[in-house]
C-alpha cells in the first residue's frame, strides 16, 4: 500500500449557517473529492448539547465523512487534536475496510474478522496514521458571536500543531476565516508545516450576523492540491477492476 496524503477540513463554528448552499451538501461533495470534513461546535457556557441550534454540526460531519464534537471552549485544545486524530483513524480504517472487501468479499468488514486478526489490521491502520502525510485546512467562523472565543481557538490550533508535528508523517496546515470581507473566505495563513506562526493572526471582526457556512466550505475545498489519498485509492480500485 503506498502512502498518500490525508486531506481534512476542520470547521470551527458556534452556530448555524444562514446564507448560501446547504453546508451538509457541500460537505458531501468535499467527501466525494477525497476531503474529510470535521466540525467542532463551540457551545456557550449556558448551552446544552441537546440544543437544536448545533444539530447542524453533526450533520455536516456525517455527510463529510468526518467527526463532530460539541465542546465548551475550556476544553477546546484537547478536543481539536482528538477530533483530528480520530478522523484520520476513521478515514484510514475506511480505506483499509475497502481493501478488505476487495480481498474477502463485499460482506466482510473489520468487525467480521475474529479479534486476533482484527488486531493485525488495526496495526496497519495505526502505522498509516502515524506515517501518512496530512493536510488540514482550518476554517474558522469569525462571525460576531465568536469574538470572545478566538483567543481560545488560536491556542487550540497551536496545540494541534504540537500534536501533529510529533508524528512521523509530514503535515501542512492552512487557516481560513469566514465570512471574508469581499469573498466567501479570508486566507489567514497559507499552507505551512507549523501553526506557531499564528500569533495575532485573527483579524478584527467586521461582520454582523451572517454565517455563510456552505459557501465557505465550498471555497475551502478548492484550496487543496489535486491528488488525495482517498481518490488515489478509489482510482486504483477502478483500474484493478478493469484489469480483472
Amino acid at each position: 500500500m503506498k502512502k498518500g496524503t490525508l486531506k481534512q477540513i476542520l470547521l470551527i463554528t458556534d452556530g448555524c449557517s444562514n446564507r448560501g448552499e446547504n453546508p451538509s451538501a457541500v460537505a458531501a461533495l468535499a467527501f466525494e473529492q477525497g476531503i474529510t470534513v470535521n466540525v467542532i461546535g463551540i457551545m456557550e457556557d449556558n448551552q446544552r448539547e441537546s440544543d437544536g441550534g448545533l444539530r447542524e454540526v453533526e450533520d455536516i460531519a456525517l455527510s463529510g465523512g468526518g467527526v463532530s464534537q460539541l465542546v465548551y471552549q475550556q476544553v477546546l485544545s484537547q478536543t481539536v487534536q482528538a477530533v483530528t486524530k480520530q478522523a484520520m483513524t476513521q478515514t484510514l480504517q475506511g480505506v483499509v475496510n475497502q481493501e478488505l472487501k476487495q480481498i474477502l468479499g463485499p460482506n466482510q468488514s473489520l468487525e467480521d474478522l475474529p479479534p486476533e486478526q482484527r488486531g493485525e489490521v488495526m496495526e496497519v491502520v495505526e502505522d498509516l496514521g502515524e506515517t501518512c502525510d496530512l493536510e488540514v485546512l482550518v476554517l474558522v467562523d469569525t462571525s460576531a458571536s465568536m469574538n470572545d472565543k478566538l483567543p481560545t481557538v488560536q491556542e487550540a490550533l497551536f496545540d494541534l500543531s504540537v500534536s501533529l508535528n510529533a508524528r512521523i508523517g509530514r503535515n501542512r496546515f492552512s487557516i481560513f476565516a469566514f465570512p471574508g470581507r469581499k469573498s466567501n473566505i479570508n486566507k489567514i495563513l497559507d499552507w505551512s508545516p507549523r501553526l506557531d506562526s499564528i500569533a495575532s493572526v485573527f483579524p478584527k471582526l467586521t461582520s454582523g450576523g451572517i454565517t455563510p457556512t456552505g459557501p465557505a466550505l465550498k471555497e475551502a475545498m478548492y484550496q487543496f492540491g489535486k491528488k488525495s489519498l482517498l481518490r488515489s485509492f478509489r482510482n486504483e480500485h477502478e483500474s484493478d477492476v478493469e484489469e480483472a
Binding site: 453533526e58 467527526v67 464534537q69 460539541l70 482528538a82 480520530q86
Partner: peptide, 9 residues
Amino acid sequence: MNMNQTSKK
C-alpha cells in the same frame, strides 16, 4: 475517543 458515537449510540 469515540466522539460522535457516544452522543448518538
